[in-house]
Every structure is written in C-alpha cells, then in structure tokens.
Amino acid sequence: MRKFTGLRTKDLINVGIYSALYFICMGIAEGLTTLITGLLFPGFTSIFVPAMVGLLAGPVYMLLCQKVPRFGAITIMGVLMGLFFLISGHFAFAFIPYAVCGFLADVIQTVVGQGDPQKKGLRIGSYLVFTFGSLGPVLPLWFMKNAYVASLVKRGKSQDYINVLFSHITLPTFIACILVTLVGALVGAYFGDKLVSKHFTSGAGRG
C-alpha cells in the first residue's frame, strides 16, 4: 500500500503538463468529431464530442494517475478543464461537471483505490467518471434550453444557428450521448491503460 502525501512542486508541474495534453486531446476530439459528423451525421456534433474525448484522452489520464498518485491531482485537472470551458465562452454551467467529476474520480482513484496499480477496475472507473465532466458544455442543451438560447443570442448567434443546434436535442439523443460517451471512455481507458502499462511502468510514482 502506498503512502500518500500532499502534492509537491514536481507534482503540480506534472499536473500542468498532463492537463495541457488533455486539453490538446479535447481540441483534437472536437475537430475530428466536427469533421466526421459533418460528413455523416450533420447536426450531431455536440452529442459525440464527449465520446471522442473519452476515446482519445485515456493515455493522458492513466499517465497522470501513475506519475502523480496523490489526492488532488485529478481534482486540479478537472477544475482546469472546467475553467477552460468558462474562458472559451461556453455556458457558465459547463464548469461544474468537470469540477465535480474530477473530485469524484480523484476519490475513486486515490482514496478508494489508493493509487494501487493493481486496482485496474477502479482506475478505469475513475476515468469513466472524469470523462463525463466533458458533458458540461452540452448538458444545458437538454436541461437549460432557455438560458442557453439567451447566452447564444448574447454572443451574437443567429436564429438559424440556434434552430440547427437544437434540431436534434431530444430525450433519445440525450440517452445516445450518455451511451456513446460511456463506450468511448471505456475503449479509451482500456487502450490507455494498456499503453501506459507497457511503456511507462518502470519506476512509476516513486519519490
């Protein structure tokens, strides 16, 4: 069983590095999803972005768990991702899911799992929870439509843009969004864990 201490300067630097990498994965995921859905499923971009984030960011998350096996690292990364949503002009509510999911994922990984590399199921579970934080920008489409529309109007979006954005926002597409996000995160966690275990295990988390 590992002994956990507070985050050190080196840990915070690593959190910053992996948060930047995770941010890059989010950008790539949004670009790829926009391209794919634009060709195959026009209007469904928002529904599939969280799943693509979960698919691509698994290795980054697993590396963070390995390199900084201390409580607080995952929480900080979640808060940073939430702040990115706020700074980039997303609906204010978008900050909350990543902050909450980051904290819960941290508890699963470093409190319940104690950062033990043998507890693969808990590590994957923590990643699933963390990935659902990426739903922050899209949840208001279903649950806070009026407020979301008002924010779009304030940002200068046209009524045609708003109509297209909400044309596929239904209960079935919400369920689909949850399911594809779960699948994307599971696949991303599996391959991320395999990749990290194969190439980055020696001497991990020491010091």
Rank of each mutant, 00 (worst) to 15 (best):
F93Q: 05
K119N: 06
S158F: 14
G31S: 10
V153E: 15
G82A: 02
F130G: 09
L63I: 06
I36Y: 06
R2T: 10
R8T: 09
D11Q: 04
C101Q: 01
V180I: 11
L63V: 01
D160F: 14
L32A: 12
V111C: 11
G203S: 03
G115Q: 11
R206K: 12
K120Q: 10
M1I: 10
G121E: 09
S126M: 08
H90C: 09
L63E: 02
I36P: 04
L104Q: 01
F91P: 06
L63Y: 04
K198H: 03
G133M: 05
K120W: 08
G6F: 08
W142S: 01
D106P: 09
T5Y: 11
V111P: 10
M144Q: 12
A105G: 11
C177Y: 03
L171E: 11
L39H: 13
I108Y: 06
G43T: 07
K145S: 07
G156H: 10
G184C: 08
K145P: 02
T110H: 15
K198S: 04
V138L: 04
H168R: 14
L21I: 14
F48M: 07
G192A: 01
I13F: 07
L179N: 09
G72N: 06
V138Y: 02
Q118H: 14
F143V: 03
Q114E: 14
Q114I: 13
R155M: 15
K10Q: 05
F71A: 11
L35F: 13
G58K: 07
L141Q: 07
F103Q: 00
F41M: 11
D116L: 15
Q109E: 12
G58M: 01
G156R: 08
I87D: 00
F95T: 02
V111E: 11
F44P: 11
G188K: 08
L122R: 11
S167E: 13
R2K: 13
L35S: 13
P117H: 12
T131Y: 03
A204K: 07
A99F: 08
G78N: 00
L165M: 15
S151W: 12
A73P: 00
L128M: 11
I124T: 13
P50A: 03
C25V: 14
S197D: 04
Y127L: 14
V79M: 03
T75M: 04
P140A: 01
V164E: 13
T33R: 02
L40D: 01
